[in-house]
């Protein structure tokens, strides 16, 4: 009869077309509507079978929401739906242009602690990485829309590096400001 919700793509689950650009406001509203219906708290009084199902559905909704909310994860998920392997560890090694940028950004991060105003240096570095990420996201959207999958995979690998770098910047900031 009807296909199980588990077989649907995350986009279908939230009633979106399969595309990179989604209305985040709508995503949030639909996420809440789904959890209002399926969260285990709504089944606290039900039998164990319904409770078990609610737990699985609610966890699945959370997984779908996490995948679609983050631009990087959404991009990776889209590629996986198209049957393209987006685990980018091997691709960055051939991406020589970006490799240079990676080295530069890492060096900048290391030098931050010696800067006259470390906090300002960190903020500046973070802002610059954010800007590059935005550009990458736009680039992915274009490549994907034109079904240029090999280029899209490269962009995703770059995005992954940038998101990781943000986490490293956060860690340095934590150490410096004595968290």
């Amino acid at each position: 009869m009807s296909t199980s919700y588990l077989d649907k793509s995350f986009f279908e689950l939230f009633d979106f077309d399969v595309a990179f650009g989604i209305d985040i406001e709508q995503l949030n509203l639909r996420y809440r509507a789904l959890q209002q219906r399926f969260h285990p708290d709504k089944f606290a009084n039900s039998d164990q079978r319904d409770q078990r199902i609610a737990l699985q559905v609610s966890a699945h909704i959370n997984e779908a929401y996490t995948a679609l909310s983050s631009p990087l994860k959404r991009a990776q998920y889209l590629l996986s739906l198209s049957g393209v392997d987006a685990s980018g560890e091997h691709t960055t090694t051939h991406d020589t242009g970006f490799l240079m940028q990676q080295i530069m950004l890492r060096e900048q991060l290391e030098e931050v602690s010696d800067a006259a105003d470390p906090e300002a240096a960190i903020d500046a570095l973070r802002a610059s990485v954010d800007q590059t990420s935005q550009a990458m996201i736009a680039s992915f959207e274009e490549c994907y829309a034109n079904a240029q999958f090999s280029e899209a995979v490269v962009v995703v690998a770059r995005l992954q590096f940038l998101f990781k770098l943000i986490l490293e910047i956060d860690a340095v900031e934590e150490r410096l400001l004595d968290y």
């Binding site: 009869m1 009807s2 296909t3 199980s4 919700y5 689950l13 939230f14 009633d15 639909r30 509507a33 789904l34 209002q36 219906r37 399926f38 079978r49 319904d50 199902i53 559905v57």
Partner: peptide, 16 residues
């Protein structure tokens, strides 16, 4: 029956 209800429930939840 539970599975069918789940599918139709998801649709209903989204369409408000």
């Amino acid at each position: 029956f539970a599975e069918r209800r789940m599918d139709s429930s998801i649709k209903k939840a989204l369409s408000g």
